[in-house]
Nucleic acid binder design. Structure first.
Length: 192
DNA sequence: CATGGGATTGACT
DNA sequence: GTCAATCCCATGC
């Protein structure tokens, strides 16, 4: 995806990332769940303003923001909105596409729907760590590619974000409707 | 320099 | 359902 894609509002970016492909090394997956974060609301790391940590968030769009969560997991974001605005889309779940065996080895699991069904799971499956913070997502080695033909205009559900304590009411979580790789808990009204 | 709080996960009752 | 693991970073003294 080129720079213009990410320079738009973070809600549009998060929604339109559904169906795009994350690729790192031999592993790749289709994005089936995202969340939007913006410096105007307190759940966003950039809410505190410009610090060493948030420098990437306020920088130019189209770069990766990877941080450690709960001391254990690396979480992957795509920086959005023009430079000077601190915003990013959190990649929360993938449908595995390439490199399944490598993912299984890294995750220590076999079932496909357990490989990338969470923000910490997918980074582990792809081998993404803090070393991948601040990379240009259009030039590699970590890339986000346009939707495959089968993923044109995927039905998408908006719901409230997961695992946060502030601004919990904002419906800024986006999920591919009915996709088995979306993380738990599932949004209200999830298709049977 | 010390402290407190997580954009989670997996194991266990 | 509960709970611990574990570390980076922002803040305050």
């Amino acid at each position: 995806m080129t720079r213009d894609f990410y320079a738009r509002g973070v809600l549009d970016v998060a929604r339109d990332l559904i169906g795009c492909v994350v690729r790192f090394g031999s592993a790749a997956g289709v994005i089936v769940e995202t969340e939007a974060y913006h410096d105007s609301e307190p759940a966003c790391h950039a809410f505190v303003g410009l610090t060493p940590r948030t420098r990437i968030l306020f920088g130019p769009p189209g770069f990766s923001y990877v941080y450690r969560s709960y001391g254990i997991h690396a979480l992957l974001n795509a920086v959005a909105e023009p430079e000077g605005v601190g915003a990013a889309a959190l990649i929360r779940a993938l449908q595995p596409l390439d490199g399944l065996d490598r993912m299984r080895a890294r995750r220590g699991l076999h079932r496909v729907d357990q490989l990338c069904s969470g923000p910490g799971k997918l980074t582990q499956a792809l081998g993404i760590d803090l070393a991948q913070n601040g990379l240009d997502l259009d030039s590699g080695p970590l890339t986000i590619e346009p939707r495959p033909a089968a993923w044109r205009d995927p039905p998408t559900i908006a719901s409230t974000r997961i695992g946060i304590t502030k601004a919990i009411e904002l419906p800024w979580r986006f999920s591919a409707a009915g996709n088995p790789h979306v993380s738990r808990p599932r949004p209200p009204g999830w298709p049977a």
